[in-house]
C-alpha cells in the first residue's frame, strides 16, 4: 500500500516513518554517550534495533488513544511525540524532564500525549493497560490502548490474569509483545515452553498474529487490524512482533559474547529496520542519498538541541523531594464519568 513509486502521499508518510525511526536511533546513540559521561545514571535500556515496532505501532494511533510500556521506553516516547528535549532532560534528572526528573529513564510519562509511563516491574503494567481499556469501555468511548512488553513477560502471571480479563470482558486493548529473543540474558527457548508465543492468546480465545518487527510496513498492517478490532468491536489482540535489540540489555551488558554470539548479532544487523526502510524508499525513488544525509543532519541537530536543553535545565531544588508524594485534593464535587 505504501510502496507505490507514484504515490506522493505514501512517499510523504514513508518519510515520516523514516524520520521517526532515525530520530530514535540518533537520540539513543547520544544517550549511550551521555551515560558514559555520567550525565545519565541508574539503569538505561536502549531500544536500538527495535525502532520499526514503536514507529509502526504508534503511527496507527489517534492522539486520544493511550500508550503504556516497559522500562525500555525512550523509543516509544519519541515515536508517540514526546519532545526530545523533555525526554533528555528527564534522563539527565533535571526539572524540565517529562516527569520532572522524578522518574528517569525507566519512567517516562506525559499526560498530554496519553503516554502512561514506562514501568519497571516486568509484566506489572499489563493489568494496568487492561484497566485503562476497562475505563474506555466504562465511559463508552472508542479509544484504544496499546501495551508494549517483552517476550519474557508472557511467562508472568500478571500477563495471564490480564489477558483473561481483557478477553472475558471484551476490552479494547492491543498487547504488543516485542519479542527480541532475550529476557535480559535468557533466550526465549530457555524460558518459554512454546516458542510461537502469540499462540498463548489461544488460551483466552483472543485474536492474535505474528509479524516481522524489522519491517515497519508489516507492523503497521498488523497493528492497523488490531486497532480496528479494538475500536469497532471492543476486542483485544495479542501481537507477537519479532525483533532484535542491537545493544545489550542495559548499559552494563556486553552487546554479545555471553548469552548470544557475535555471529548471531551480525546476522540480525543485516536486517536493521532503518536500513530496510531507507533502501526500499531509495529503490522506489522516494528519497535520494542526499536527502537521507540532510534528514540525518537535521535529526542530529535536534538531538544536540535536546542535549543542550537538558544540560541547561536546572537541577531539582531539594524541597522537590517531598513534592508529588500525595495530592491534597478530594472530589467532593462529582464530575460525570460519561462526557458528551
Amino acid at each position: 500500500m505504501a510502496r507505490k513509486k507514484s504515490d506522493p502521499a505514501a512517499a510523504a508518510l514513508n518519510r515520516e516513518l523514516l524520520r521517526s525511526m532515525l530520530m530514535q536511533r540518533r537520540f539513543e546513540e547520544r544517550c549511550a554517550e551521555a551515560y558514559a559521561l555520567g550525565k545519565i545514571g541508574g539503569f538505561c535500556h536502549l531500544y536500538i534495533g527495535q525502532e520499526a515496532v514503536s514507529t509502526g505501532t504508534l503511527s496507527m494511533l489517534r492522539p486520544d488513544d493511550y500508550v503504556i510500556t516497559t522500562y525500555r521506553d525512550h523509543g516509544q516516547a519519541l515515536a508517540r511525540g514526546l519532545s526530545a528535549r523533555a525526554i533528555m532532560a528527564e534522563l539527565f534528572g533535571r526539572s524540565d524532564g517529562c516527569a520532572r526528573g522524578k522518574g528517569g529513564s525507566m519512567h517516562l510519562f506525559d499526560k498530554q500525549h496519553n503516554f502512561l509511563g514506562g514501568h519497571g516491574i516486568v509484566g506489572g503494567h499489563i493489568p494496568i493497560a487492561t484497566g485503562v481499556a476497562f475505563a474506555i469501555k466504562y465511559r463508552g468511548g472508542d479509544q484504544v490502548i496499546v501495551c508494549f512488553f517483552g517476550e519474557a513477560a508472557i511467562n508472568n502471571g500478571a500477563f495471564h490474569e490480564a489477558a483473561n480479563m481483557a478477553a472475558l470482558w471484551k476490552l479494547p486493548v492491543i498487547y504488543i509483545i516485542e519479542n527480541n529473543r532475550y529476557g535480559m540474558g535468557t533466550a526465549i527457548e530457555r524460558a518459554a515452553s512454546i516458542h510461537d508465543i502469540y499462540e498463548r492468546a489461544g488460551s483466552y480465545d483472543m485474536a492474535r498474529d505474528v509479524v516481522d518487527g524489522q519491517d515497519v510496513f508489516a507492523v503497521r498492517d498488523a497493528v492497523g487490524k488490531a486497532v480496528d478490532r479494538a475500536r469497532t468491536q471492543g476486542m483485544p489482540t495479542l501481537l507477537e512482533v519479532r525483533t532484535y535489540r542491537f545493544m545489550g540489555h542495559s548499559m552494563s551488558d556486553a552487546v554479545s559474547g555471553t548469552y548470544r554470539t557475535k555471529a548471531e548479532l551480525d546476522e540480525y544487523l543485516k536486517r536493521d529496520p532503518i536500513t530496510l526502510l531507507r533502501s526500499r524508499m531509495q529503490e522506489a525513488g522516494e528519497i535520494t542519498e542526499d536527502e537521507v544525509a540532510a534528514l540525518d543532519a537535521e535529526i542530529k541537530a535536534l538531538c544536540q538541541d535536546a542535549w543542550d536543553f537538558a544540560d541547561a535545565s536546572p537541577e531539582l531544588p531539594l524541597e522537590a523531594l517531598y513534592e508529588d508524594v500525595l495530592v491534597d485534593t478530594t472530589s467532593d464535587a462529582a464530575e460525570p464519568a460519561v462526557r458528551g
Binding site: P127, I128, T130, G131, A133, F134, A135
Partner: peptide
C-alpha cells in the same frame, strides 16, 4: 486474580475513574 484486578483498578484510576 488479586494481582490482575488490583492492576485493572490502577489503570482505571490513571485515566479518571
Amino acid at each position: 486474580t488479586e494481582l490482575g484486578f488490583a492492576g485493572v483498578g490502577v489503570g482505571a484510576a490513571m485515566v479518571g475513574l
